[in-house]
Design a protein around this nucleic acid. Structure first.
Lengths: 200, 200
DNA sequence: ACACCTCCATACGGTGGCGTATGTTCTTCC
DNA sequence: GGAAGAACATACGCCACCGTATGGAGGTGT
């Protein structure tokens, strides 16, 4: 809600790059969804005008596409890299589930993801979402296979696990009170969830 | 973009009721989300004008509130009533999970629900969603308690089950190709899901 | 059959966002 | 240090939607 300071933002940064716009677009998307990725509000937030934007991008859709691509590459492999550091398959699965469930408790951590799910009707969003989800499912299924499960069984459990994460993210966002609130409650819940998806 | 035919729609239906507007609002919400619940498009779709709408409702928000309330009362107890017809707790759980997962395979069946999750930021939507979700969780937890599980354990499994449903609905909507496609695949998946959430 | 109330159409002003056209400043490079 | 181009500002027309104001068509009772 900054009031005046229009021309006194940063000592540098009089000029903007395309990356500044995509970053602002992702930030806006995290707060207000895809609808908040609007040229003029973004320009106001960046202390610029549309004239700048339409030099860097052809139109709003081009910005959305660029922002999604950036998110996809930046964010997708982060968790996988973290998980891959664990030694054995079971520890990797624990780390994976624990990390993603814990992320739902951090306000705004999954905001972009939820915004994308909320706008799955948009072509670019649907495409990005499909790629990321496919990779997640494949990776999770591979973890179950490493645990010794046959492919179909591993696929089913991966689907349950990913669904449980997505649903949990939804619940944590839409109805925070109905989800484990304290870190300990989350820990025991995560343990129980892991126990169920790795059950006999 | 209809050109003329303004007064030649249905033989009857010259006058509209508030219920007609809420029904149209829910239909629009199922197709295009909350943003599609717009007064003028709805009026055009109903063959009327805004003059009619603003006689029945104070503003757009009042329509949204009425539509949500109608959905909440109409749709909430439907599944529960169906499930409650089953004899024993395990059969109820099977029917519940089978029904809701199967509903994700029917195109547009969960559209309103997904639209609401997509717009959980809206106050009325958040409130309706919280009420419905709370009742679902409580009911599902009660099913697990009827299976002989202690309250906390039942609550955890209910959370897993509801999350798995919500996540599955998201996946089925956003990335239909990554979810069991044929009825048989769904059946075996549902069996496996039930087996996991009812596991030891 | 006439006044009345209900229900609706028409017309209007306002807002917020998109995209374009054109001028303006800053940079860079010779 | 001046021209060329890059990066931006300004101003405009356009569209979609919200909400209001006002008048006019229906029924309805008496």
């Amino acid at each position: 809600m900054e009031m005046v300071e229009r021309r006194t933002r940063k000592p540098t940064a009089t000029r903007l790059t395309a990356g500044d716009w995509t970053a602002a677009a992702l930030e806006a998307m995290a707060r207000g969804g895809l609808a908040a990725v609007a040229v003029e509000p973004l320009a106001a937030r960046l202390g610029a005008t549309k004239g700048s934007f339409y030099w860097h991008f052809a139109n709003r859709d081009a910005l959305i596409e660029a922002a999604l691509q950036r998110w996809e590459t930046d964010h997708t492999d982060a968790v996988i890299a973290l998980v891959e550091a664990e030694p054995d398959p079971l520890a990797r699965l624990r780390t994976l589930i624990g990390t993603v469930i814990e992320s739902t408790a951090i306000p705004g951590a999954d905001a972009i993801e939820l915004a994308m799910l909320a706008t799955a009707g948009h072509p670019h969003v649907a495409a990005a979402l499909a790629r990321v989800t496919a990779r997640r499912l494949a990776y999770t299924a591979r973890l179950f296979e490493d645990l010794g499960l046959p492919p179909q069984e591993a696929g089913h459990r991966a689907l349950v696990a990913v669904s449980a994460y997505l649903g949990h993210a939804q619940l944590a966002h839409a109805t925070p009170g109905l989800v484990p609130g304290t870190p300990e409650q989350r820990r025991t819940y995560v343990d129980r969830l892991i126990g169920l998806v790795t059950g006999p």
